[in-house]
Design a protein around this nucleic acid. Structure first.
Lengths: 347, 347
DNA sequence: AAACAAAATGATAGCGCTATCATTGTCAAT
DNA sequence: ATTGACAATGATAGCGCTATCATTTTGTTT
């Protein structure tokens, strides 16, 4: 008679006693009901309900060496882009017994590494990380971990395990080509929060401009600052002050694009006739603004859903056929780049 | 010689053996170094580093009956408002050993209840929930749970435990009073996602209009839909179509307000002279738009930080003095309500 | 040097669950 | 009736850690 630590919790053994079976049978009835006779399962479920039994995830994790936790690491909890991805992830996970453990790397490789280490110590069922720019150490952790891994947000040639995303470079190139096709001559680029994804967008922009023979280093403006609408206004004004002949801008994201539009409105610059603006991500507001803003639509919620899907499939045995999914993008042309016929060539 | 389940993991006992002490001493060296002599701590830390020992949170949770998990339940992962709160929470938690377990109730009391049950079964160190409109069952769970609880986003007379937020009713009343003071006559209200918080804002609006003798049911327009910029445009146009004398609108949030502004721009309605617009939340873009939009600033990131702070203090013993914190709000007057002197009274 | 408190360390026994192997019951095939 | 195969259930022993109590070491006081 020396019960030392009682927790007051209803345990599996309590249920077993009440149902007149052994604890392991209760465990089986709850985990794999197929192994237990129908009547016993029913009786156990009844008792579980009556007693209000809730399994202890810690005990289960310890005994079985695995959890229902899917670890997700994103660089920002505030950025709309990642909220959309999260929405997809939560939507997909809600129908299941998996739980999401969210980590916020704040765009830092070191943070990401630390988070990975913590997550891995929890024996996750699966891991999801953003992008393809992990540190060597982080990549090593991911390659060694005993669970499926999905990289989301980008495509690339060399996934750790699985991957779902799109090519930022191609998307930005397509956007720049759109501006060129619309007849804009001096097309600038503004980018904030210069992480590797953004850098690849810049590359795409450069490719398009070089191909058109219009590349000019002075038309780019980037900053490490977190991007905001206000910053978009400021960067556009600065860029245009330095290059008065600038007649269009490709923005690294929609916040900047909206800021650029507001700046034009304040300056009395007519969009799209005098000046073209193209955003990136196609947030909902781009369609609503006046004028509406051309942007590159990406499939973020879908990315979350698919990524989670691939993870769950891999966890539960049947690896999905495709391990490297490109969800693509679409340039959605709107008023902000619908320039009317313009006479003067400059070149 | 019957080791049955080996996990390959470096355990506390491995460290103990290597360091020449007992496992419990290692445990103490890591949890409460004050109880162990300096040299032993140092030796243990050395071994921990060499062996790459990482504690198993499941084992710890099971043995100690507690975890480092702070459960947070929010109604939306996409809504900017909650992302800001989350940023505050993560910022505060990052300096500590606590982990955040995020739950997404999707504005559903039933979902919230389910999440709470799941969370509670994990023996959280603390819980944070949004708002004061839990179901009776959820409230009961929160009152019974063996950890501190903070309700965020609102203030109210009857906290489960602790509370940090502001009065949505007072904030909306102040915003409506601002519009009245600026000389607007027919002030409408548009609100989407009509959750209890929004309903209280509507109440505040009504109070202000009644006090000014201008209340008119037909000036309100609400919907259960998720709020978007496009929806804001649509709702404003509908409202104004029904009441052509409408000369201002208080929007339940900034997305709607921005949509309202865009709608006015498309219709050629001059803001603020012909029409006043006031938003709610004061997202960053409100200051940047053209014209800039008046909004009610709330302290969301601060709310996350303070809520987490109160939780951690309560967990670690010293309950903070204030258990019910009102962070207030500020009506930030901007161009969208800066009406120039206007002649005609309408009566 | 004796006496005692305080500090440091250890032995033991679980936390609540499941992996593993063992046993029992059931039924068709011989 | 005997055999075997399979389904259903149980006994046992941990998973890796910490609470609890016991013991040893150290320092302080007289």
């Amino acid at each position: 008679m020396k019960k030392r630590r009682k927790s007051g919790r209803v345990t599996l053994s309590d249920v077993a006693r009440e149902a007149g079976v052994s604890p392991i049978t209760v465990s089986r009835a709850l985990r794999s009901p197929g192994m237990v006779s129908k009547e016993v399962v029913k009786r156990i479920e009844q008792v579980v309900g009556d007693l209000g039994y809730v399994p202890d995830p810690a005990a289960r994790a310890l005994a079985s060496q695995r959890t229902d936790v899917i670890g997700v690491i994103i660089p920002s909890v505030t950025n709309n882009v990642f909220s959309d991805v999260m929405r997809g992830i939560y939507a997909r996970v809600e129908e299941t017994n998996y739980r999401i453990q969210l980590g916020n790397s704040r765009y830092s490789q070191k943070e990401e590494e630390k988070l990975l280490q913590t997550f891995v110590s929890q024996r996750p069922a699966g891991l999801m990380v953003s992008g393809i720019d992990q540190s060597d150490e982080a990549r090593q952790i991911l390659e060694d971990v005993a669970c499926p891994v999905v990289q989301i947000m980008e495509t690339g040639p060399d996934p750790v395990d699985m991957m779902v995303g799109f090519s930022h470079r191609d998307a930005a190139r397509a956007a720049a080509e759109h501006l060129i096709a619309k007849g804009y001559e001096r097309i600038g680029f503004i980018g904030a929060r210069m992480d590797p994804r953004t850098a690849r967008r810049l590359e795409g922009y450069r490719e398009a401009l070089r191909a058109a023979g219009r590349y000019d280093e002075g038309l780019e403006r980037t900053t490490a600052q977190r991007s905001t609408v206000t910053l978009g206004s400021g960067m556009l004004l600065e860029l245009k002050a330095g290059r008065p002949d600038l007649d269009a801008v490709l923005c690294n994201n929609d916040d900047l694009a909206l800021g650029a539009l507001f700046a034009c409105q304040r300056q009395g610059i007519s969009v799209p006739d005098e000046f073209g603006i193209c955003g990136f991500n196609d947030l909902e507001m781009m369609a609503a603004s006046c004028p509406s803003i051309t942007s590159v639509r990406t499939y973020r919620e879908e990315m979350g859903v698919r990524g989670t899907d691939m993870l769950i499939q891999a966890i539960e045995g049947g690896r999905s056929a495709e391990a490297n999914v490109d969800l693509g993008f679409d340039v959605i042309a709107r008023e902000s780049t619908a320039r009317r016929e313009q006479g003067g060539e400059k070149g």
